[in-house]
Amino acid sequence: MKPFSVFSLQHAEDLSQVASFKHSRFLAGGTNLVDLMKHQIERPDHIIDLSGFDEANQITEDDGRVVIGAMVTNTALADYAYKHPRLSLLAQALLAGATVQLRNRASTAGNLLQRTRCYYFYDTSKACNKREPGSGCAAKEGFNRIHAILGTSEHCIATHPSDMATAMVALDARVHICNAAGVRRELPVRELYTLPGDTPHVETQLADDDLITAVSIDTVPRGTHIYQKVRDRSSYAFALVSVACTLRVNEGVIDEVSLALGGVAPRPWHAHQAEACLLGNPPSPELFAQAAEAELKDARSYGGNDYKVPVLRRTLTHVLNQASDHQRAHPSHEGAMYAR
């Protein structure tokens, strides 16, 4: 690991005391960043340590708005969301990710900002435009069965690995940001991430001095919540494909739906084309096939990940069928189909 200096941040206002944000990294749980530093993929000169950022450790509810502090652990958030059926999608996604050891340490904001698990990003002997801009992309013609089929560019086909972020996109969560000048702003998670284009090393809209202080869910979509994850093992594996879905059927038509896809794109993918196809229509297998087709019409695969196109189509239609069947059998149902 390259040597670094440490600044301990206690309050968001302390950002103004940070000497330089150039070559610096915020350190929350460290489950991803510390690993990347060991691999010499991240080589910060300065660490802004958030261990003492205690004001960001709370979950508060205000008039239906749930505000989750940036430092709330994945375990604490999963426990909270499990007890609130309207946040079931979040609990399902969080508990589908990683292991208890990692979730006990990983933070909410850190989960959003974790880096891709592309093999070639991790292998410093290989070309990667994300790690070393201009060096090329070894994944395009390499082993790319875990790679993206939507939103890619000729320069990068890596996926965003997070389950939680996929649920946050479906729930239209907002990130709360504070910068070194003390200016606070909010940004929908749906707009947080940039697509790779010809700058795959740029992954978000955040500036170097932007600190995420919280993530809020302002209005929870009503209806049945399903997070369906397809992976190589039944536990402790990243999504090859995942679907986060909330769906409500009212008076015979889908009157609320939100859909996000994980494991298939450089960012947690808001499936707004599928949503538009579904909204206001009576649920049917034919409609669901059309919705999947609308979202997948621009999909492009690279050999090893060709299978993801049909797997995503089938997973998406399966989830929509399950949610609408459940709505038919249990009118006005909210939350998980099954929970203890």
């Binding site: 460290g30 510390v34 340590d49």
Partner: peptide, 15 residues
């Protein structure tokens, strides 16, 4: 009391 992976913790984070 919570289980964690010791290899991913920098000791100064645990003051």
């Amino acid at each position: 009391g919570e289980r964690m992976n010791a290899c991913l913790l920098l000791t100064f984070q645990l003051a």
